[in-house]
Design a binder for these strands. Structure first.
Lengths: 205, 205
DNA sequence: TTACTGCTGTGATTTCTGTCACATTGTGAG
DNA sequence: CTCACAATGTGACAGAAATCACAGCAGTAA
């Protein structure tokens, strides 16, 4: 598939510039794409796969914020790039992933010349901001059982399948909880016929 | 004081346009400035006072995200305004507050014409995003005692004084906790000589 | 097959937080 | 001063979640 179909809103001139100046990169599932404190030299457009954006804390906890899929861009890298500042988050390839790296130097120029780029950037900020709000809602107002249900639904939606191919431990990490708690809650969900449990996989019903 | 001194980074032309087109508004402490689901017709620059940005949940909870003080702008209103979308947050005047309302229609124009405005907008996104990250850190990784300490420090810094003029109930609301818990934790902090408790006021040591 | 390793299930216990009930104290209105 | 009310202090209890301990189970490598 042509990558340009992922960004139908971009005007032809913009597509041309990106085609010419951007560099395509591949990551394997599990690769760390960006880490806390690292300087950002380019903005990433996701072409294929899924990138997991999460927060790391000193005591070893990881905490999932959201996923970036095809057609999406990393808002953090945009902001950081424009000010050559460091990122405060971690990004990891959740699946094998293709991204298009747009060098910082281009950003100002694209913003000025291409309305569609300008709107894309605004739209990206808006979406990520809203996702953070929804994360805050969940963690501030909901108990673990509701957070787990939300997590599973989001995962299935993002990955476009009914199976969640993760161990209980991985889920516990993403929710900053413990495996036992997740196992017990999943059992309860199974009793309510919401899921069917398998090894390394949870089937949503 | 001249409001323009609050935005030394703005170029003269920009200051002129804002002077001419923006409308100044006053709010009294406690006034709701923006509520969830409301359409945004303008972006607010804060001239004086403090605006509290918080999230409301169905079951009556409020949850503080951050404060906006003089020289700052509301990132949410910028994003929403540019897309004439509704806001997902609440804004309340924490003190008597003066703001400058910039109509949406101007935004695109300012972005194109004035580099200093463009950078201000980017900077605003960046700051608010970082504040949200710090909120998520606290709520995801910290217990209530640490969150309370963080809350008090931030309040004192923002308001520029060593006294926190709030009741335990108000603090509990901001942290989505209960008064009793906050009272007890404050007592412990007093025993550790971190604060001195008064009626409707907490003195930081 | 056997041995090993990583995933999952489950009980017992502890810690943190929220909730209820009620006492006490400070402050302002009359 | 007295009353009323809001703010605060505190004990008892309940529930959610974290932690510890350990038992089974599935897959893999030898």
């Amino acid at each position: 598939m042509n990558w340009q179909e992922l960004f139908p809103q971009f005007e032809p001139g913009l597509l041309g510039v990106i085609e010419k100046e951007a560099v395509q990169r591949s990551y394997s599932a599990g690769d760390i794409i960006m880490r806390t404190g690292q300087f950002i030299k380019s903005t990433a457009l996701v072409l294929a796969g899924q990138i997991k954006i999460y927060r790391e804390n000193p005591e070893g906890g990881e905490f999932l914020m959201y996923y970036l899929g095809p057609g999406q861009a990393c808002a953090v890298s945009m902001i950081c790039a424009l000010q050559s500042q460091t990122s405060e988050i971690m990004a990891k390839a959740e699946e094998d992933t293709e991204v298009l790296m747009i060098p910082v130097q281009l950003m100002d120029d694209l913003m000025n010349k291409y309305k569609s780029w300008y709107h894309f950037v605004i739209q990206t900020y808006r979406s990520r901001f809203d996702e953070l709000l929804s994360v805050i809602d969940n963690i501030a107002f909901r108990n673990m059982d509701e957070r787990l249900e939300f997590y599973l639904k989001r995962y299935a939606e993002k990955m476009g399948k009914k199976n969640v191919d993760l161990s209980h431990q991985q889920i516990a990490d993403d929710l900053n909880s413990s495996r036992e708690v997740i196992s017990r809650l999943l059992k309860k969900m199974e009793q309510r016929n919401l899921v069917k449990l398998h090894r390394n996989m949870i089937e949503l019903l």
